[in-house]
Amino acid sequence: MTAVLAICVAVTFAVSVYLLLGRELKAVAMGVFLISHAANLSILAMSGSPILPTPDPELGITKRPPISDYDFDGALRHGDIAAPLDVMVDPLPQALILTAIVIGFAVMGFVLTLLVATSRKVQTLDVDELATGEKRHDPVERPAADGTVQGGAA
């Protein structure tokens, strides 16, 4: 199961890095959203206890992996692993993920609003055009503005 999760994390990361390297801000934003999902998945994959997976003879505790497989469930049903309470999932990483998802959701809303506002005001979402203030194909159309360090509206 860990291998499957690891592959999921790797693929999500790869796709988001590809998107992040794009020119269009929409793609970059999607890349950032995806990378936060990859982060959450990777927490899920590595959550659990540092003393997994063998039962500890001293303490008698086995923490369950976050997503268990059939073998583990079978062992639980057969009674090979003692009390169900002792094999409960560590809830803290899931609480972390939940918090990160909620925050990420709010931020996603903000970023999309920012992109809409930017595209209405500046008429472009291309990274180069935002930086230089020039259309990439027909530079005569817009007056050149000093994009790097603006005086701003004080």
């Binding site: 950032v32 982060a39 590595m46 990483p93 972390l96 903000f110 920012l114 935002l130 503005a145 994009g147």
Partner: peptide, 28 residues
């Protein structure tokens, strides 16, 4: 909400979002 602000705001926002994702991974 000026044009100059909107041209630059995304850098700050997206970079910090990226940093936040890395922070979550590191905390996990």
């Amino acid at each position: 909400g000026g044009e100059a602000q909107l041209r630059q705001a995304y850098k700050y926002v997206l970079l910090n979002l990226l940093a936040s994702a890395l922070f979550v991974i590191a905390a996990g």
